[in-house]
Design a protein around this nucleic acid. Structure first.
Length: 150
DNA sequence: GCCAACGTTGGC
DNA sequence: GCCAACGTTGGC
């Protein structure tokens, strides 16, 4: 059982969008480090913070659950898709995704500033300079610390 | 295998 | 809209 933080731009896909569907394929990841986490590390039952990025109210807005292990991201095979990548084929998939499901939305968001200011979260990849991963692992102590902030 | 050019992310 | 950081690409 692992903990994660997964970023999404709320104009693309928000926690409210997630609340309104049964489950959602987390597709479009085109970064190898993140691909490896999706393909190799994520397990059914893992929990992830949902983070709203690149918007006015940046921060963690809730929790979701990983409901599949990694499987090929078929978006990469669709020439009409924004994330089309001709290097990926059904025989040799290059990109992977998992399905996620809504667990809860926090009564108020835990802002990026709050996370940055917390003395126990200085090692959180999210608040480290230059970090650009859209999915990152969260340690159990970090997970528990963040839960006290909501 | 080096590295310059280019693209993307995402906070500000 | 700017730009720092850093990943990726491709010529050599």
């Amino acid at each position: 059982m692992n903990y994660w933080l997964m970023k999404s731009e709320p104009t693309e896909f928000s926690i409210d969008d997630l609340e309104n569907v049964d489950c959602e394929p987390w597709d479009g990841v085109r970064n190898y480090q993140v691909r490896n986490m999706l393909r190799d590390a994520m397990q059914i039952g893992d929990l992830a913070f949902f983070y709203h990025s690149n918007c006015k109210e940046k921060g963690i807005v809730g929790i979701m659950e990983i409901v599949t292990t990694g499987y090929p991201d078929s978006c990469a095979w669709d020439p009409k898709d924004k994330h089309y990548d001709p290097r990926s084929t059904e025989e040799k998939p290059l990109w992977y995704r998992v399905d996620v499901k809504f667990v809860k939305k926090f009564p108020q968001l835990i802002s990026l500033n709050t996370l940055k200011a917390h003395p126990d979260l200085t090692e959180l990849p999210l608040v480290k300079r230059g970090n650009r991963l859209s999915i990152m692992p969260i340690s159990t102590p970090q997970w528990q610390t963040i839960l006290t902030l909501c």
